[in-house]
């Protein structure tokens, strides 16, 4: 058994938590803005090949360096050819603030280095830089089809459930459930019976 005040507090806290959670889940989901899609801005400090590079020979790898360290589970780096197809099937490698990917370019044309990264502060960045190989001309601006292909690189990056956070949430929910249940089903102690000991003297002095 619980006192009315205690029960009221428990139920009020539970009601607020439930109301806030339900409200949040019931809110219309706003249109999720795509991660900023540009040439990187001040978050990209360097790239190899550099933007708009005109190369006589094909690079064997591309490198992009960011102002912050991309999260281990949150990065993509690829190179697309003129038709928007990925060049090579290697994996990007993260080292500090840098992403590197080996590429195998066997024909001339315009190519696009595309990345999608997530940083520890929650920011995400999808961007690209263009270069040409063997054409002698700067790469042409992205066509709509090429832009869609580049943006698709970012959209393929999903957000899996973080296992640590998921476990923490479950543990918290369990603790709340156990505490609330125990409060509701257990009886509060009765004090001040005739045989209960006198309170400490020093406290009684303060009470006066």
């Amino acid at each position: 058994m619980v006192t009315p005040g205690t029960r009221g507090g428990i139920l009020a806290a539970a009601a607020v938590g439930l109301a806030m959670t339900v409200t949040g889940l019931a809110l219309p989901v706003p249109a999720v803005a795509a991660p900023r899609m540009d040439t990187g801005g001040d978050l990209v400090t360097a790239s190899v090949p550099p933007a708009q590079a005109v190369l006589a020979t094909a690079p064997t790898r591309v490198v992009v360096t960011f102002a912050a360290e991309p999260l281990a589970e949150g990065y993509h780096l690829t190179v697309l050819d003129t038709e928007g197809r990925p060049v090579g099937d290697t994996e990007a490698v993260r080292s500090g603030h840098t992403l590197t990917r080996d590429v195998a370019i066997d024909r001339p044309g315009d190519f696009t280095t595309v990345w999608h990264v997530r940083f520890a502060d929650g920011r995400e960045l999808t961007g690209w830089r263009r270069f040409s190989v063997g054409t002698g001309q700067p790469p042409a601006p992205l066509s709509d089809a090429q832009r869609q292909a580049a943006e698709a690189v970012g959209s393929t990056h999903g957000h899996g459930v973080d296992p640590v956070s998921a476990v923490l949430l479950v543990v918290n929910a369990l603790v709340v459930a156990i505490v609330v249940t125990m409060l509701l089903v257990t009886r509060p102690p009765r004090g001040d019976t005739d045989d209960s000991p006198d309170p400490p003297l020093f406290r009684l002095r303060e009470d006066v």
Partner: peptide, 9 residues
């Protein structure tokens, strides 16, 4: 994690 929204959003 449920709706797949980007973190800033």
């Amino acid at each position: 994690w449920g709706l797949g929204m980007a973190r800033p959003q």
